[in-house]
Design a protein around this nucleic acid. Structure first.
Lengths: 348, 348
DNA sequence: CTGTTAGCGCGTTCAG
DNA sequence: CTGAACGCGCTAACAG
């Protein structure tokens, strides 16, 4: 009962040696049996398996992968915000494909912090992961350069990293934003506001580009007074929407580049309706789907996409590289998005 | 260029030996330096650190934890559905606390499948995790019994496992459901429907109990004809809501025991409003919050709770056990929920 | 078909 | 203060 030692019972995970001893064979025979039983007499295999069951033996995967070249069976994932349902689905997609390949995932949340991303990647490498999948932050990315990563396979998701060649899965941000904007123009809107996130974020930039393309293609001018591109959370989005809608020349429609901005805009619109304020009730086009969008008090068109599928594609890209030629050129997969109108016959 | 071997460049993660050689010291001196530098001359430490930087050395955490008793720094988490935003937040909460303790998480998705849970737990043990956090499935749980788990610390979240004593974090399901139901009764409703998930699911059972308590306390009978407790997805929930609302004696309010049922019910209500169908526009009380609930066409009261906090509590419970006495009795933490009314002055 | 030897990267133990 | 030897659990490579 010494107080200094934690003295946890640590009921000692059985080792392959103990299995072998109990089965009356050498550790090598036990090992072979556990790895498929090639060149082991059936009766010995029986005895080994019996011992395994009796002892509740679990192979130590860490020891197994100690030998260089042996895969650890671990995939490291770093994402920016696990609480975002979209990235939750993304992680699920990766997990599924990883599991199909007998791999497990180590997951870290960066919170958009490049320093944290660096730590995570470093730790992942220290744990000998077989590959890395990440939604990169927009900060410094020196830790992702080939000279730091060696030949560790890396897949980027959702965003690119400037100057870094790596397998990448993206959404069709530009096309989706373009089509969503066109649907507003088709419905006769000419005064269209834009809510987005910091343009330093890759997707923010691309979605604005799609918006811009559609507007210029139709010869509709973009009024900078109703373009707000710096909102990262719902409250900021709400304030931006409010400022726009308070103008005498308020927009009759708003393009929102992501979920946070959409929620903020709709909260503001809801308040105005509830308070009986005058002014337009703008239609919304929202990049990112959300549930019950069809029950909103204004028409909401969503640009929908599948986070789980993005995750599955990212993992597939990784495993293709893991099993194939490590030197093949970097590939980019761009997943389609769908534009969904509120209800049949009731476009924005 | 032999075709049979993968022949990955594998630019060989540097080892501590190489660091030592480059620094002109023994591996032991390098090791000591990396572990705090106790009893190592400052100038040697300098040289070692320089070599580390030059080689981009990363300590092999797997090898480090090979020695029995050494923690792996890994926490295994198995949850039922990562795509559910609530569990995404939960995972985030766990990840945060784990990171604060210098641990990493291995994450697996069970999809409510007990067999998959068993595999995951087994794999986690094989990877020498320091502890396990799981949202248990409702199936067979033999693999969680102490005789199988040894003294591996285990924390259960959201649900209990029958007959298993383990640290547990729960929501105040009963109290929340009770208070939500009371709010409906206070508003004058007497005909209240119930939508829930399989009662075999722990939370489903508890939430029904809270509903029942409130109803019986107020002397309002529960009509089994408007109680549906077997919906696991939105479509099933919608059908159940439809059946209730098609009745001549349709409920004037509905208690929904979880997010999936709430969405289904609201979709059905939205359809009826849109199609101009007659009948009541029932108020909703929803266990589980969702965004923009205040913009719904019927009043929605939500019973809100914080998945991230649940995750943080679960991890805290685990680390308390890891650092403290492993033999302390199992503890249960029950987190409060808040009942939030639609808009000030407009109760359901 | 089976067993022995050796070594993966690291850190504890013990000897200088 | 520093280094050499040993062993953690496991499995290629090499006997037998």
């Amino acid at each position: 009962m010494s107080a200094s030692q934690p003295e946890r019972g640590r009921s000692h995970q059985p080792t392959i040696k103990e299995v072998a001893r109990l089965a009356g064979v050498s550790p090598m025979t036990a090992s072979r049996t556990l790895n498929g039983g090639l060149n082991v007499r059936p009766d010995l295999q029986e005895r080994v398996m019996a011992a395994v069951r009796e002892l509740g033996y679990q192979r130590n995967e860490n020891a197994r992968s100690l030998r260089p070249g042996q895969p650890s069976g671990l995939i490291g994932i770093a994402i920016t915000n696990l609480a975002n349902p979209y990235y939750g689905s993304f992680a699920l997609g990766v997990e599924e494909v990883a599991a199909e390949h007998g791999r497990r995932i180590i997951l870290g949340n960066t919170g958009e912090d490049a320093g944290r991303e660096r730590q995570l990647v470093s730790d992942f490498i220290g744990r000998q992961v077989d590959g890395l999948i990440l939604v990169p932050t927009s900060g410094d990315s020196a830790h992702l350069r080939p000279e730091r990563l060696g030949d560790m396979p890396l897949v980027l998701a959702s965003r690119r990293v400037p100057g870094l060649e790596a397998d990448t899965v993206l959404l069709d941000d530009v096309g989706g934003a373009y089509r969503g904007t066109i649907s507003l123009l088709d419905a006769g809107h000419t005064r269209i506001g834009f809510l987005g996130n910091r343009s330093s974020v890759f997707t923010g930039e691309r979605r604005y580009r799609g918006f811009e393309q559609a507007m210029s293609e139709r010869g509709v001018a973009i009024d900078p007074a109703i373009v707000a591109r710096d909102q990262q959370d719902v409250d900021a989005a709400r304030r931006a929407a409010r400022a726009m809608l308070d103008r005498p020349d308020a927009p009759t429609a708003i393009f929102s580049a992501n979920n946070r901005n959409t929620i903020g805009a709709l909260r503001e619109i809801g308040r105005r309706i509830h308070d009986g304020l005058p002014g337009p009730r703008p239609s919304i086009v929202s990049f990112d789907d959300f549930e019950l969008s069809e029950l909103m008090p204004v028409p909401v068109t969503v640009i929908d996409h599948d986070g789980r599928r993005l995750g599955r594609e990212a993992a597939t890209l990784l495993f293709t590289r893991l099993t194939g030629d490590g030197d093949m050129p970097a590939r980019t997969v761009e997943l389609p998005v769908t534009v969904e109108f509120p209800r049949p016959g009731e476009r924005a």
